[in-house]
Nucleic acid binder design. Structure first.
Length: 863
RNA sequence: GCAGGUGUGGCGGAACUGGCAGACGCGUACGGUUCAGAACCGUAUGGACUCUUUGUCCUUGGAGGUUCAAAUCCUCCCAUCUGCACCA
């Protein structure tokens, strides 16, 4: 009967956690930068009482890599902090009926305790919390820098509003009822017509409304091209890069200008398919376009009808106007534009399916080549013309044409574009239009400017002051500004400068967020701070008249757009980051996080870094050269959420099975980047492995291992080393299990083998590994700063090799040959032929062909 | 509709540049240990046929194809997940 070691994991784990913290083994020296490894993990928002198993899953994935790197000799910096400002923690505080500050002073320490109990190697001396004054004063500084650089501006725009929660909602909080898991309801109690198409508030399921409000925005669109180009320089998953590419949505097109008949005016449309322009039969403009450009040209007999239409469209929300499958509406303006290509007269219509902020707000109608234009033409009985290029080597367009053909239409054959495919025809047409001065190539983007202001309480107050008297006398901050570096590589568009008359940045940061009782949003289009004159009543820094401080706070994504810059400099008080430390430790070496941040956070952080680079604050412009996107941990087939009641608290499992068993289980579930389901039975199995593993170290120690164990040991070192580098944690653990199984079969193991085995498991089970390393094997503390094992190539080499024998491609047996004979084709063929089970299939026939892959396979083709 | 991903036993998943499909684990069954249970140890475990063994055939969402050889490469479908979407 084997003697079993009694392993009190709770006690042992706590012991080592305290020792690691005391000895600061996870705190690197920031003045030394050679061999540094900045291992960043996406910090959580503490909008719950504590961590759920998903956090445990992803943070362990990050920690395993950090531990591996440390044992590979890197100086690893692995910080942890909290994204504690913003709507999520605020909503949670509202729910618990507390002040956000009170709630966080309870939850953040709990989060920290939980992270510590998982045994992660964080440098807790460099932790940060975005709602700390010491942090957010620099978030405000960042806003001021943006404003000074001309990258922050104000604009009246349509925003989402929940009439029940009385608050403005971010886009990401507006979803279909199915996504929100709610029954849709309207505020006045009337029935909801199309439940699948309506957009509701994530929290209460009320149908959202649209409101026009003044907002602060950042000119991220100025950086669209650089954000796109930068993607080719960074090592990110293709999936995430594609998401960013699509979000930026760069499209090459052309602005074509047509003259308006009987008017000394032109109309400009944007299109990506000018090659179809021979088929243009009408023009459609957005309602806003008419207001801005065409109102005076419209004859009095038509103007009433047009005005009515515009008014009713503008009452509709953008979502409503764009709702899928909605029947086209529109009104003829009485105006005509002339198509220079063929002299055709094109009636100008107004319709709400055309958006002012896409392209020029005017679209050329080519119903023979565009589904939407076709629907419009059918509805209002406009002619349909198809352009045939006399070529059939572009299938997709031919299909589109023939679909329309079934209905009706005139066909024109374009000799001009004869024989060209879409791409060639587009280029030829663009060249032609530009040569004649009718068009100008323009690149368009899907990316919109970043809406930075929130009419909420829990965020950094936007550090701006508005002075009415300065605004009246048109005093702009920019007219007297000199601090923008002359070398900034981005050309700043100042066309919106008039917006800034009377606005000044705060000179004395921070603008402290006052603690107020009435912090809940009222939904009047203003933040709760707007009810606090003691906050907003200030003196104008310019003219010393009474002025008003901005009462909006900034978006939580601004807090998280620069936190990685702060970590190494936590404790530095006069600067957001120390120049020397930053030069040594940034950019990050690995960013480990969830794919749900593919566009928002990751795009914003890249943008902010590029701006700071242009402002000469940083030497690099990509903050995350390597990104790993982990998968999702689900429970019973669906995402863990409080409303579903399937949230797993890791504490219970740590208590019952130990942190090491939980870590191993989470990493063994499946590939790190896949969606995995948490199951209780699985972790019980892992606890059995942990116990078996412990017992392996107390097996009889021999002087020499059997050749089988030696070979397997070195193979496992090779496999685990390679797999860890590629985040293949599940197969690393499986390989280690195989090794343990073989050792246990043998019943004894050398001390050296024990040391190698415990090192292999150390990144996954750091406490067990330390305990074994120090107290069972008697080595000096700590295993986590010891060197990763190397394997011996010679030990892996097999003396004999098994070669698969196939006949006609089917497995018919194996032959074992000496390693020296592996490349000897004739010898292997003879051995195979002599094998009984193979010979049966060869039937003494002569092989037509023999495929020989040395060391792997021999295939007789006899057919 | 567009873009990207995924599909392998009862389950989670292995399979490096095409070379013995199902590693490792869970679950299940039987046996051992036990007063009994838990835990532990051992054996078996894709399906069908044969059945004393040896063994044969089928099998990686479906249908074709390339190849001596396909889970892997190509074409077309199907299912499913995630973004974006009347974006001109």
């Amino acid at each position: 009967m084997k003697k079993k070691i009694s392993y009190n994991y709770n006690k042992i784990e706590a012991k080592w956690q305290q020792r690691w913290l005391k000895d600061k083994i996870y705190s690197p020296d920031f003045l030394v930068s050679n061999n540094k490894f900045y291992n960043l993990y996406m910090f959580p928002y503490p909008s719950a009482e504590g961590l759920h198993a998903g956090h445990a899953f992803s943070s362990t994935g990050s920690d395993v890599f950090g531990r591996f790197m440390r044992m590979k000799g890197k100086k690893v910096f692995q910080p942890m902090g909290y994204d504690s400002f913003g709507i999520h923690p605020e909503n949670y505080a509202i729910k618990t009926g507390e002040q956000p500050q009170t709630m966080l002073s309870r939850t953040i320490p709990h989060f920290t305790e939980q992270f510590k109990s998982l045994g992660h190697g964080y440098d807790w001396s460099k932790s940060l919390t975005t709602s700390d004054l010491n942090y957010y004063k620099w978030t405000q500084w960042l806003f001021v820098e943006m404003f000074k650089a001309g990258l922050a501006y104000r604009k009246k725009m349509e925003v989402n509003f929940c009439p029940s929660c009385k608050t403005v909602l971010a886009d990401e909080q507006v979803m279909t009822p199915a996504q929100a898991g709610k029954d849709p309801k309207k505020i006045d109690g009337s029935p909801v017509e199309n439940p699948e198409e309506t957009k509701v508030c994530e929290r209460c399921g009320t149908v959202v409304e649209k409101r026009d409000l003044e907002q602060w925005l950042f000119r991220i669109t100025d950086y669209a091209d650089r954000l796109l180009k930068g993607l080719s320089k960074i090592n990110w998953p293709e999936k995430i890069k594609t998401a960013q590419k699509n979000w930026i949505g760069k499209k090459e097109g052309i602005n074509i200008t047509y003259s308006i008949k009987k008017a000394n005016k032109t109309i400009t449309v944007w299109t990506s398919r000018p090659d179809t322009n021979f088929g243009a039969t009408f023009i459609v403009v957005a309602p806003e376009y008419v207001q801005k450009n065409l109102v005076r040209l419209i004859s009095s007999d038509r103007s009433k009808k047009v005005e009515e239409y515009i008014k009713s469209s503008l009452n509709r929300s953008k979502d409503d106007r764009m709702s899928e499958g909605r029947e086209k509406t529109g009104v003829f303006t009485g105006l005509f534009a002339i198509n220079q290509l063929n002299g055709n007269k094109m009636p100008i219509w107004v319709s709400d399916f055309v958006l002012m902020d896409v392209g020029t707000g005017a679209v050329v109608g080519v119903p023979g080549h565009d589904k939407r234009d076709f629907a419009f033409a059918k509805k209002f009985d406009l002619p349909v013309v198809r352009v045939v290029m006399g070529s059939d080597h572009d299938k997709s367009d031919i299909t589109r044409i023939s679909q329309v053909q079934e209905e009706e239409g005139i066909m024109v054959n374009s000799e001009f574009l004869n024989g060209l495919d879409i791409h060639e025809a587009t280029i030829k047409m663009m060249d032609y239009l530009e040569r004649n001065g009718w068009g100008k190539r323009v690149t368009s983007y899907h990316l919109r400017d970043w809406l930075i202001s929130r009419q909420r309480y829990w965020g950094p107050p936007i550090p701006m002051i508005y002075c009415e008297s300065c605004a009246k006398s048109k005093r702009s901050y920019f007219t007297e500004m000199t601090s923008l570096p002359a070398e900034a590589t981005v050309e700043v568009d100042r066309s919106n400068d008039w917006d800034h008359f009377g606005w000044y940045p705060e000179e004395n940061l921070p603008v402290e967020l006052p603690e107020i009782e009435d912090y809940k949003p009222e939904g009047k289009g203003r933040g709760p701070l707007a009810n606090h004159p003691e906050f907003y009543k200030v003196v104008c820094p310019k003219c010393k008249e009474a002025a008003r401080r901005e009462t909006d706070v900034s978006d939580t994504f601004l807090d998280s757009s620069w936190y990685f810059l702060r970590y190494p400099s936590v404790g530095v008080s006069r600067l957001p980051w120390d120049v020397e430390i930053t030069r040594k430790w940034l950019p990050t070496d690995l960013y480990f996080g969830g794919a749900e941040h593919a566009v928002l956070h990751l795009m914003y952080a890249r943008f902010v870094t590029m701006v700071l680079h242009d402002l000469k604050y940083l030497e690099f412009e990509e903050p995350f050269p390597k990104l790993y996107a982990h998968g999702l941990l689900i429970k019973d087939g669906s995402k863990m959420s409080k409303s579903r009641g399937n949230v797993i608290n890791p504490d219970l499992y740590i208590e019952k099975f130990g942190a090491d068993a939980l870590r191993l289980y989470l990493m063994f579930l499946g590939p790190m980047d896949a969606t995995s389901d948490f199951r209780d039975t699985g972790i019980e199995g892992m606890k059995r492995f942990v116990d078996r593993l412990m017992n392996t170290f107390t097996l009889k120690t021999t002087n020499r291992d059997s050749s089988e164990v030696i070979s397997k040991l070195h193979k496992t070192v090779k496999k685990v080393t390679e797999d860890l580098a590629e985040f293949r944690y599940n197969t690393s653990i499986a390989a280690t299990m195989e090794l343990v199984n073989i050792i246990r079969e043998k019943g004894s193991i050398s001390k050296l083998a024990k040391e190698i085995l415990v090192k292999l498991i150390a990144p996954f089970a750091p406490h067990l590994a330390e305990e074994v390393w120090v107290n069972v094997l008697g080595n000096s503390y700590s295993i986590h700063t010891s060197r990763w094992p190397k394997y011996d190539k010679n030990a892996i080499k097999e003396k004999t090799i098994e070669i698969v024998v196939q006949v006609n491609g089917k497995f018919r047996g194996t032959v074992v040959v000496n390693a020296n004979d592996v490349k000897n084709k004739d010898f292997v063929i003879e051995s195979a032929k002599n094998d009984k089970s193979v010979a049966k299939w060869l039937e003494e026939k002569e092989a037509k062909k023999i495929v020989f892959v040395p060391g792997k396979i021999i295939n007789f083709v006899i057919f």
